[in-house]
Amino acid sequence: MDFSTLDLGQEATHAHTSAWVASTLRRQIAEGQLLPGTKLSEQVLAQALGVSRNTLREGFTLLDSELIITRIPNRGVFVASPTAEDVREIYAVRRTVEPAAAAWGSTLDLSTMRDIIETARSAQRNGDVSGMAGANQRFHELLVASTGSSLLGELMGRVLARMRLVFHAMRDAPDFHTHYVQGNAHVLDLLEAGKRLEAAEALRRYLDTAEAELLEHLRAAQEN
């Protein structure tokens, strides 16, 4: 991959630290710019980010602890490829955090959430799988942001980066995302109607279904 094309976003107060490196790469993974199995060249990536190799390695260590990247001895560092256990772990977190946000988040931005749904529907009409996946990510990120918790927001950023890797495993099943465009729209309809506990329960069922579908897809892929 040509790392010079990466969108590094706005320079932050702590730019060019290991935390900034990890945050930048995590965002690129969450946005689908770095795909599972991509080799992360130290020399090229350090130059693209404008950091030393030591700082880059420290950033890698943070991402390795989050299971977003994989270090393979004598081969290098790679963007991780998801396993069934990764899917179970991701959905255990999502089932705990997201329904609670739907039920009790204090700053729901329903207008922006509706805009995201319309973006997802437009992507669906155009057969844009990546666009649907990206809108899905933004919807759930915004839902968790309604809690007002920076810690939960940071956790969700990590979860969504791992989730995007899982979505790439479904690239040969383009209809997968279509179900969840409608699922998100249903959850939002309930939130707009003030039926927050019903929205939370609908979201929990939706997450159960998505997890089961992903696990079945991974199982079938391993058998083929």
Rank of each mutant, 00 (worst) to 15 (best):
E66S: 05
P82F: 07
L45R: 04
V93T: 12
I117D: 02
W20F: 01
E201V: 15
S65R: 09
R196Q: 08
G127P: 10
R27E: 08
N184T: 14
T112A: 14
F139Y: 15
F3M: 04
E85R: 03
A101S: 15
V187M: 07
H177E: 11
Y206W: 10
L67F: 08
P99N: 13
W104K: 08
F167V: 02
I69F: 00
Y91S: 05
R27Q: 11
D109G: 05
A30M: 07
Q43P: 01
G50N: 06
A30N: 02
P174K: 06
A161Q: 08
D189L: 11
A220K: 15
E58H: 09
I116F: 09
S41H: 02
T13Q: 04
P99I: 14
A173C: 07
Q222D: 05
Q124T: 13
M132W: 03
T178W: 03
D109S: 06
P82M: 06
K195D: 15
R205G: 08
L190N: 02
A100N: 05
R94N: 02
G32R: 04
H168M: 10
S81Y: 00
H179V: 15
R196Y: 02
R26S: 03
D2T: 11
R205N: 10
A46I: 02
E154T: 12
F78I: 04
D7R: 13
T178C: 10
I116C: 15
G9A: 08
A133K: 14
I116E: 12
D2V: 10
T5Y: 00
G194K: 08
G9W: 03
G194V: 13
L191H: 03
T209P: 00
V51D: 06
D109I: 04
K39Q: 13
V166E: 04
I69H: 00
D208M: 06
K39L: 09
E118W: 04
L25G: 01
E211N: 13
S149V: 08
G148V: 14
A221I: 07
K195H: 15
R219E: 12
D64W: 01
A199M: 06
S146A: 15
A185R: 12
V77M: 10
R53A: 03
P73R: 07
A22T: 00
H16L: 07
